[in-house]
Design a protein around this nucleic acid. Sequence first.
RNA 1: CGGGGUGUAGCGCAGACCGGCAGCGCGCUUCGUUCGGGACGAAGAGGGCCCGGGUUCAAAUCCCGGCACCCCGACCA
Length: 571
Amino acid sequence: MRASRFLTKTLRQDPGEAETVSHRLMLRAGMMQQVAAGVYTYLPLALRALHKIERIVRAEMDAAGGQEVRMPTLQPIETWAETGRDAAFGANLFHLHDRRERELVLAPTHEEVVTAIARASVESYRDLPRTIYQIQTKFRDEPRPRAGLMRGREFEMKDAYSFHAGAEDLDATYQRMREAYRSIFRRCGLPTLEVEADSGAIGGKDSHEFIMPAESGEDTVLLCPPTGYAANVERATSIPPRAPEPEPAPMELVSTPGIKTIEELCGLLGIEPVQTLKAVFYNADGAIVLATIRGDLAVNEVKLKNLLHVRELRLATPEESVAAGLTPGSTSPVGLPERLGVRRIGDGSITQGTNFAAGANREGYHYTNVNYPRDFQVDEVADIATAQAGHQAPGGGGVLEAHRGIEVGHVFKLGTFFSERIGAVFTDEAGAQHPMIMGCYGIGVSRVLAAAIEQNHDEKGIIFPAPIAPFAVHLVALNADQSAVAEAAEALYAALGAAGHEVLYDDRVESAGVKFNDADLLGLPVRVVVSPRNLKNGVVELKRRRDGATEQVTAADAPAAVAAMLARDNL
RNA sequence: CGGGGUGUAGCGCAGACCGGCAGCGCGCUUCGUUCGGGACGAAGAGGGCCCGGGUUCAAAUCCCGGCACCCCGACCA
């Protein structure tokens, strides 16, 4: 492709509305154009990179036994009502009406439709397992689209679904898919963490996320290198530091005027947060729930939500707390009788340690020497704590460290939620019918592109990993208006193409600085410079974008030298 | 949905408090000089200020209403 004919140009200044690195660089490089919030046109550079990613994804899905289909984006609401997921998705689902006023939705995912495929095509255990996948545009009316391709309302996703006669068979495919995902990200040149994940409302057992480490990521993962433990913070468990265990003393009411926070309480009493208990009020689908946890820990709302089996969980408002008979700022599990009708959940941390300080449900007062279960009771003790960096990994053996990252893939076991509701059953060897057991496996293809740029850039621009670069080579002709340069560059352009390289040929009449800066911005893996100076020396100059390694070779040797340089790009 | 912010030339922004002929930089066009890290000079083109009302002799500017976009939080690939 000749730069002089190329559709898009680069921007010299940063676009005003882009904060995130990948968003900014993609706009500056002319890779995409915004059409609406969270909706973008993929211009040639972006589309070429997406195609590269998709090719790798397809190859690995096919190798893992997947069969590609294309399901419709436009779906009748009834498809969603059948499983109740129209309500589950709520406002995230795009709705529209046809000319007969029939209600349709734009699909955010495809479990319902793919399960209907399995229902139609699978009859017996002999027809199982099956893995179906597609690469397609998804629509989700996100509450807040952000950061360009990172979180769009319209985005590209590879979604795969597997169907099984038994749990062991699902497990085999699940593991095979995890391997395929590792291969995909490795082949893309994108180091990715694989972590345990929350499996969400549908509540499958196993779930893993693939997280690309990046500071701008929305997710936090906790890693324990010595033990290999890796989990999303939403899901992670840990062994928090132990609380002191002095001889239990009689509970005492102390005056704590104006004290609202754990820090203030600790300051006043001369103790550490680990020696306190805090009580947090939640509104869980309208019901008030009291969560009690040690003061140095935080409630993990995902865990709590899963425990309670509710759709919506949020902090209770002060008014709601008061209405439930509680005193915000001095809330406490102590003296909270069962009859209030507030469900009480205690974190495991309350069962260890003695003589805690806790609220007194009375403005300006706290209790000291509070001991569980002597002084208060809960309806259930469970792990509802947020694991933190510095905690011991579950089982011990190492300390957790926290990292930010971007979720680019997610695999999980669905069980029979969909097959039961859609009637996707098979006949077993004994002639009995069972719902198929399902797994599902997603990759945010367009997000992978954004994440790749988040992970691979410097102050000058993008540094594309060779496997997903829109072009492999940026051929730059300096003083392109000189006929000797133009002739040499044209010949090299043809030779590189003939050798199978994808080349962006900068034949524009522009200054060296402009061309070099554009090349740095676009970040194609290898830059080849043809110039009067090089011509005089009988060479062309190769420069690798990633590490700046340079090499001078004859024009005749250039195609092979480029190939060699590309091969070493990811090392 | 709550909080914060912004809509003025293709892009980045000033002008707005204090109404008075719409401006700067980049980019673009033409000519000349330059030519290995965003060159220089000269001459040009290009918007009526997000939309709708209102106030006023006069509105980008003041008032009212709307829309859009961005950022921070509750959600996800």
